[in-house]
Amino acid sequence: MSQAALLVLADGRFPAGGHAHSGGAEEAVKAGRVTGAADLEEFCRGRLHTTGLVSAALAAAAALGLDPLELDEAADARTPSAALRVAGRRLGRQMMRAARSAWPDPSLDQLAAARPKGAHQPVVLGLAARAAGLGARDAAYCSAYECVSGPATATVRLLSLDPFDATGVLARLAPELDLVVREAAEAAQRAVADGVDELPAASAPLLEVGAEAHAGWPARLFAS
């Protein structure tokens, strides 16, 4: 299998709906918590070590072949905000469509049939990585990177932030991304032996609360 498949899956232009979501950045910008590149970096760092770690571990576990339905429940249990559960499933459904076109595989068909309105996005992402012949770490990298690149590109649009500054934020976070991916992949390995309770359950309460508020706004640029 081709390692370059990782580039296809991680590409921000992979047509799986991510462009319409800000990863909480829109709410944080409106609340005044993100006003520039420095705030964005802190926002992304927090997200990476909480939501990002959980998503990366779920994706890695799916890539290792754990039962996707069990992982889907684990994702539900780790997502207190109903709005974020809806967004996660919507993105999972969109990821499923793209993945089935790119890397057709019976495992994707089975999950699509079992969750026609969408399984949680990291689970589908991990399964897609597996179908593409990629490993657990690859899946974790995709998920963790997406968790910071989404808010970064959204903030470029929301604040007219200099795109070079936003990219600089991502570059500076790269070493931490490596650490989060390692932790996620190790947790996924433990989950193979000892069950999904081994997966991390780090939470970012402000992201969850903010997502609930954002979902009620009458006017917004991003879906979440």
């Binding site: 047509p15 709906g17 462009h19 793209a98």
Partner: peptide
């Protein structure tokens, strides 16, 4: 470029 939401 990414028609997935509209297709759904």
């Amino acid at each position: 470029d990414d028609i997935s939401a509209n297709l759904e």
